[in-house]
Simulated assay, not measured.
Amino acid sequence: MIIDTHCHIYKSEMENAEDILKEAAERDIHVILNGTDPLSNLEVLELAEKYENVHAALGYLYSFADEATDEDISLLDGQLKNENVVAVGEIGLDYYRTKDNKDSQIKLFENMLGLAEKHDLPVIVHSRKAMQDTYDILKMHDVAGSMHCYLGSAEMAQQFIKLGFFIGIAGPVTHKNNKKTIKTAKSIDVNHILVETDSPYLAPEEKRGQKNTSLNIEYIIQKLSHELDMKEDEVIEITTQNAKRLFRL
């Protein structure tokens, strides 16, 4: 079994989503689908009910920060009771896109972390150009989780690990000249690494220019195997056990 710990394979993102999920099942690839708003959360729940290899992560991302209402928070609160939900995600901060709504992003992030604490669920965190704020906020909450497609420094990765977080390694690790992610992966214990695709985004080098899918997780595993001087089977076994432990699969 391989576990793609972060992807967005549902109809609003990919027309052929169910075909991909079926093929993933045939290859013994389990996926954690991440919602980002009310529509995608609903799609994730429906697919998690339908496919045994699909697990649900529900959340509101920074892109929904200016729209989220108290009713939306209440809706998500109820959905998180579903037995197929394994995490609150995708949530987090992104100052690369815009800093103009920084306060509303932080407020929504805090709300999401509060729901994770309430339901005793791990979190899947997006952080871009906002690492220090992300760390400072997470430090105030009793949550564990995954730093999705981690793009920070190797030193900061160690700080997140101390908080109980795993480091998500995605397609960018395969990109030419991406020494930063490789340095991070080599600097931390493999027992703190998760593999993910973020499909349909962040295609690995071998599939650049194409829509990404969970089937491409093999390229991330191959790259980690090479850089960490480990057998591919070892990388699969350890990262799968990491995901099972975090998400209680």
Rank of each mutant, 00 (worst) to 15 (best):
F166V: 01
K22Y: 12
Y219E: 14
D4H: 05
A65H: 05
V235Q: 02
M230Q: 09
L45F: 05
A154T: 07
N34C: 12
V31L: 06
H6I: 05
L39S: 04
L39C: 06
V195A: 08
R245D: 14
T239S: 11
D198C: 14
L215T: 13
D4M: 04
R97A: 06
N101R: 05
E218G: 09
E52V: 05
I20N: 13
Q159L: 12
D72Y: 05
I32K: 01
Y219V: 10
Y135G: 10
P204E: 04
P204F: 04
I182L: 11
E90A: 01
R27F: 12
R97F: 13
I193N: 11
Q132N: 13
L115E: 15
A203N: 07
N16A: 08
P200D: 12
D66S: 15
E26K: 11
R27I: 03
D229F: 08
F64H: 08
T174Y: 03
I2E: 10
I217Q: 04
D233I: 04
K176Y: 09
P204L: 03
T174W: 04
L42D: 13
Y51N: 13
Y62E: 14
D136R: 03
S199K: 09
C149G: 08
G209W: 02
M156N: 07
E46I: 14
T213N: 14
G168R: 02
D229S: 12
A68Q: 05
E90I: 01
L113Q: 08
E237W: 10
G164C: 06
Q210E: 15
Y150P: 15
S63F: 06
I20F: 11
T98V: 10
G92Y: 00
S74F: 01
K186W: 03
E49F: 12
R128S: 05
D142L: 03
H175V: 12
Q79M: 12
Y95S: 05
E67T: 14
Y51F: 15
M147C: 11
I236F: 07
I169L: 05
Q158I: 05
G171K: 00
G171F: 01
N216G: 03
F247A: 11
K207W: 00
A24F: 08
S12V: 05
